[in-house]
Design a protein around this nucleic acid. Structure first.
Lengths: 206, 206
DNA sequence: CTCATTTGTGAACAGTGTTCAAGTCATCAT
DNA sequence: ATGATGACTTGAACACTGTTCACAAATGAG
């Protein structure tokens, strides 16, 4: 049996991932150090490179875990809302909440860049694309004239807009905008956007 | 006179800044190296630290120059449009164009983080705030009920939304979205947002 | 038990930003 | 003009990265 070796390897893999996640959550991606991770995981420096191809590879797995966590939260948010507009508001507010509660891990999703401009692996791009998917269903109800492709890009645009609002607000530090203000801005933004869609569909002619 | 010393110092200051800007524009912030800059500027490594406090300080000045450049472009865009809606569309499209044409320099504006989470100096925060200002005037015409403070946060929100759309589109590389699609999405987004504002103001009751 | 293979170890390597003792040069009082 | 003074320049050295690698230890098969 080779299970004992694989078990050890898998244990170390998880220990390193958890140690790295904790480091990032505590002090951010910029202060992540290979030696710190190895020490926290209780292994030698070189062992890290037997399990992960590089630090960037490990960070990719951190981000993968963060995306899965965020994904679960967004699923709940959409499920607990009724109308399409309420779903979009709930998704945006949940996104904001996650970004605030997991500031460093969330930032790592966008701060991390591959060396030499190497493209991100496909499996990770797929994970990112899932996020946009949450917006598709509510949007389909609001823009019934769009085909699948148009719906996808529209969902991505709306998602990106919300991301930008949250991103710029959090980047400037907590000194600038209190959370309630950001929350209100985000909600009003979504409602305005939805109203604009209704306007375009001719409902304003009633 | 101490002019010769100061002239030399100023010449070196500019040479270092230009060399660093060229390096960033060519290969991005992540590949910026103090030794490369010094070599390009024709001085020794240590001389860089007589003129700039650190590499981060130099990068701050790069970003300052980029912000000024972007600011000029946005001024032109707003001046050449008539209605508030057209101004907002023109601003968004010019923002996109600048981001595409100056990809690495534009990315550096947001990729750069101070070490130890030190706050950005006030003079640089002020420069960033000017960007939001472009949105204020057109927005004031569309939301006449807002006071100055509300107008400022609303302008920031709209700017952030546009930034997010451009940012996420460019981050994934040119493989995903062609420029025309992004342009169309951006324009439609602004129009939808403006329609939503009109809707809220009751114009739809006509 | 023996041996081949995989895995763990931490010193060594190449490459960072930053500093600093020593040499060099511009400035200015004499 | 000349020497003294103080700022500037220099590039070697330092502290700290991620990554590699020869060697040691542990594991699995015969």
């Amino acid at each position: 049996m080779i299970s004992k070796r694989e078990a050890r390897r898998e244990t170390l893999r998880i220990a390193l991932l958890e140690a790295a996640k904790a480091r990032v959550a505590e002090s951010g991606l910029a202060r992540l150090r290979a030696r710190d991770i190895a020490k926290d995981a209780g292994c030698a420096l070189g062992a890290l490179y037997n399990v992960y191809k590089s630090l960037d590879d490990l960070i990719l797995h951190i981000n993968s875990a963060t995306l899965a966590q965020l994904n679960t939260k967004l699923n709940h948010a959409a499920a607990n809302a009724d109308t399409p507009q309420e779903k979009l508001v709930a998704l945006a507010r949940q996104y904001m909440t996650f970004a605030i509660d997991n500031n460093y891990l969330w930032s790592a999703l966008f701060d991390h860049t591959m060396p030499e401009n190497a493209p991100l692996p496909q499996w990770h791009l797929d994970e990112q694309a899932i996020l946009f998917g949450h917006v598709v269903d509510p949007l389909a109800a609001l823009k019934p004239d769009l085909d699948a492709a148009g719906l996808h890009t529209a969902a991505r645009t709306l998602f990106a807009a919300v991301h930008g609002i949250v991103s710029i607000s959090l980047r400037e530090g907590s000194t600038t905008i209190p959370r309630e203000t950001l929350d209100a801005q985000l909600t009003e933004f979504i409602i305005t956007q939805v109203n604009g869609m209704k306007y375009a569909c001719g409902e304003h002619q009633i």
